[in-house]
């Protein structure tokens, strides 16, 4: 797998404000990467630098083998971008807008217009963009980003304010592209919906990359406890179950469910004890730490030394 985006020691400051203090990562073909971080963590700035809209103060960026700020445009033709709060010229129709952008990318207008159907905007192409709802604008935004089968797709908060059905369409389209080899980088606040989809997660905090890896890798690094829920048939009304080591904290739910936060190295041992006890265990549920919890963990960790 070859890297489509290469970022090395990139720093960007606006005057005294350091928007990005140091980030290095490579994105590979066909990867779907979630870039997460609170507002002002440097996500948008990173994307703008990848587009060549702003120049890094230090460090190097290469997108599809080109320096995006150098003024060469062959890479940009293979790049799709959906900005946060995308805006279009209000007086044009959806169809005219899409045709305009396809001409700028020197792609066949017909193919670009077909994308409007893909994102489910086929019925409204002849309406002016200022009559569009937020969701329809976002669909149009995605349609223009898909023009010319981009090899790199940068999506800045693509699903904020969208209804669940539209989110589904969104991710379907994106995942199809990623399967065909497009690198997809998307930033979002909606961590739960990224959890199932992103192969890799990059966490930014105050302009610094604080974590980078697949969800499993991050879980391993974070060593966050896995939540184990065990439904026990004859749980004594008070006192802990016999199989539970005495010092282990636990919670009772509904009288017959025991919930334990198990550290990664205790997990298997605990399960063995619980099932070895005989008939007591009726059901068992393992909940690995969610992206939300991982995110919170890495942010706490990043804040601690300061």
């Amino acid at each position: 797998m070859s890297a489509t985006v290469h970022i090395a020691d990139v720093v960007k400051h606006y005057g005294k404000v350091e928007a990005v203090k140091g980030a290095s990562f490579d994105l590979a073909e066909g990867e779907m990467v979630a870039l997460i971080g609170h507002n002002g963590a440097g996500k948008t700035t990173l994307m703008k630098m990848m587009l060549g809209l702003i120049r890094p103060s230090r460090g190097t960026i290469a997108v599809l083998g080109e320096n995006p700020a150098a003024g060469e445009f062959s890479a940009r033709r293979r790049l799709g971008y959906l900005p946060e709060n995308v805006a279009f010229d209000a007086a044009l129709t959806g169809r005219e807008t899409q045709a305009f952008y396809s001409r700028l990318k020197r792609e066949p207008v017909k193919d670009a217009l077909a994308l409007l159907d893909v994102v489910g905007l086929g019925h409204a192409v002849k309406r002016r963009v200022d009559t569009y709802s937020k969701g329809m604008r976002q669909r149009l935004g995605l349609a223009q980003a898909l023009i010319g089968r981009p090899r790199v797709l940068l999506l800045d908060e693509p699903t904020t304010g969208l209804d669940p059905e539209l989110r589904q369409t969104f991710y379907d389209v994106i995942q199809k592209l990623a399967a065909e080899g497009t690198t997809v980088l998307l930033s979002s606040h909606a961590l739960t919906e990224l959890e199932e989809r992103a192969g890799r997660v990059i966490i930014m905090n105050r302009g610094l990359k604080v974590a980078d890896g697949t969800l499993d890798e991050l879980r391993r690094i974070a060593r966050l406890p896995t939540r184990i829920r065990i439904k026990v048939a004859d749980l004594p009304p008070s006192g802990s179950p016999a199989w539970l080591p005495t010092a282990t904290p636990y919670r009772r739910i509904n009288g017959h469910i025991v919930e334990i936060d198990a550290a990664p190295d205790e997990k298997l041992d605990l399960l063995r004890r619980a099932t070895a006890d005989g008939s007591a265990v009726q059901d068992l549920e393992l909940i690995p730490p969610s992206l939300d919890e991982l995110y919170a963990h890495f942010l706490r960790q990043a804040e601690r030394p300061q």
Binding site: L53, G71, R76, Y81, D89, Y101, L104
Partner: peptide, 14 residues
């Protein structure tokens, strides 16, 4: 201000 410039400049135009 409207935000259309950001998108336009992400296209292959100087």
């Amino acid at each position: 201000e409207r935000g259309t410039m950001l998108l336009l400049l992400s296209y292959p135009v100087a």
